[in-house]
Nucleic acid binder design. Sequence first.
DNA 1: ATTAGGCTATCACGTAAGGGGAGAGTCAAG
DNA 2: CTTGACTCTCCCCTTACGTGATAGCCTAAT
Lengths: 256, 256
Amino acid sequence: MVSYSVKELSEIAGVSVRTLHLYDEIGLLKPSTRTEARYRLYGENELLRLQQILFYKELGISLEEIRSILDDPEFDLLQALESHKVALSQRKERVNTMLTTIDKTISQLKEKKMLKHEELYEGLPKEEAEALRKEAIEEYGMEQITRSENHLRKMSKTQLNKLKEEQKEIANALLSLMNSDYTRAEVQHQIALHYGNIRNFWGTAGSSDKQANAYKCLGELYINDARFTTQNGHANPAFALFLSKAMTHFAENNLE
Amino acid sequence: MVSYSVKELSEIAGVSVRTLHLYDEIGLLKPSTRTEARYRLYGENELLRLQQILFYKELGISLEEIRSILDDPEFDLLQALESHKVALSQRKERVNTMLTTIDKTISQLKEKKMLKHEELYEGLPKEEAEALRKEAIEEYGMEQITRSENHLRKMSKTQLNKLKEEQKEIANALLSLMNSDYTRAEVQHQIALHYGNIRNFWGTAGSSDKQANAYKCLGELYINDARFTTQNGHANPAFALFLSKAMTHFAENNLE
DNA sequence: ATTAGGCTATCACGTAAGGGGAGAGTCAAG
DNA sequence: CTTGACTCTCCCCTTACGTGATAGCCTAAT
C-alpha cells in the first residue's frame, strides 16, 4: 500500500500543505490514516479525490459545493454545472461592462488631456507647437490626434470663441437655476441649448442612440472633472451633481 | 447648508449604512461633521464624493486604490486605469476558459447519459423505446440526439460488439502494465490502440488538433467517471489516474 | 548519546468588503 | 413618560487560504 505524506501529496498535486490542512479541517479531503504522532497519510484514493477537487475548483466552484458534488449521491451534477454556468455568464457580462466602461473613461481622459495640448498650441511659435504635437502623438497615437485636429481645423477661430461664449452663458443661466428641480422646463431648456452646442463641437457623426449615451457619459464626467466642480474659483460640487442629473434626464427623455 | 444623516445618504446613494460606517472607518468618506451625540452628518461634498467612489467601485477598483485616486494629487489616474484594464482582461480570459471547460464537461455528461439511454433502447418493445427517445429529446435537444443516433446507426451491431471486445482487451492489457511508467513504449502502444478504437467510434470529423484535445478531455473524464474507477466490481482509482496520465501523455506527444 | 536540520502538528491572526447582531444611547411624537 | 425609529461602537462571520509561532517528531551525522 503506497501512501503519501502531506508534503509529498502537496508536491504531486501542486497545492500547498496549508491547503491540505484546510481540506482536512473542513472534511473535504481527509487522510486515510494518521501515524501514531498524528502525521497525516494519504493513499491513492485520496490522490484521485484531490484531482477531482482541483478539477472542479478550476471551474470556480466553491469548496462547499464541491463537497456536495463528491459526497452527496443525491446531488444532480448536471444541474449544478448548468446553474454554475449561468453564474459564470453573469460574471462574464459584469467584466465586459466593466471593460467597456473603463475604455470609455480612458478615452475621455485622453481627449481631455488632448484638449489641453491643443490649447497650448495657440499663440506659440511654430517650432514649439510642432514639438508639443510630436509629444502628443507619441502619447495618444496618430489617428486620435489627426481626427481631433481635423475637427478643430474645420471650425474657424471666431466660431470656436462664439461657442465658448455660449457655453459660459448657459452655465450661468443654469447656475441661477441650481436650486430648483432639475426636471423643470427651464432647466431642461438650457440643457437642450447646451446639448446643441456640444453637438456643434462633436460634429454630427454617430446614431442618435450613441449620441444620447455619449451625452450621459459627459454628464458623469462632469462629476469627476475639477473644472466643472469649481465655479469662479471655489468648489461647487453640488452644481456638477445638479448638472449631471439634468443632463441624464434630458438624454433619457429627449434623445432615446 | 443641507446635510444628510447616515440613513438618508445611504438611501440616496443606494448603499447600506454599514458601508458608510466602513468608509468612515477606513478614511475613504468621512462625515463633514458630527452632532453632539456623535451622529454622522454628511454635506453635498460628501454626496458627490460618494458618487465618485461608487463610479470607480463599479469598475472593480479596490477601496484602497480609490482613495489614492481621490486623495493623492500625484496619482496618475490614466495609468492606473490602463493597468486595471489589463487585470480585467485577464479576469475575462479566466472566466472564458472556465466557461468553455464547463461547457465541455456538460456536453460530456450529456453524452454519457445519452449512451445510457441508447443502451436502454436495446431489446425493448418499440413503443417503450419511442417513449424513452422522446424523453431524451426533451432533455438534450433534437440535434444532439439525431447526431448521435445517426452515428450509432452507421455502425452495425457486430461492428459495435467487436469494438467493445477490443476495448476490454486493451483495458486488461493496460491493467497488467499499471505499475510501470506510463510513458513506457508498451503502455503507449496500448494507448494508441485505444485511441484508434475511440476514433472509430467518434468518426473522423474534426482537425487533429481538436481530436487531440478531445482525447485529453476523455482522459480527465475517466477520473470523474465511476465506470472507470472500478474494475471487476471493486474500486480502483489508481488505474483511472494511470490511464488518464497515459492518455494525456499520448495526446501531447503523438497528436499535437 | 546528542544534536542539527527537516518535517509535521495545532493555534491563531490577517486578507476585502462588508453582513448581521448585541447592547446602549438619542431623538421626536403621542 | 413611554414608544418606536434611529444611531452609536464593538464584535464575530464570511472565502480560501498565507504566514507565522510554538512545539513535537524523525533521521542522519557527529
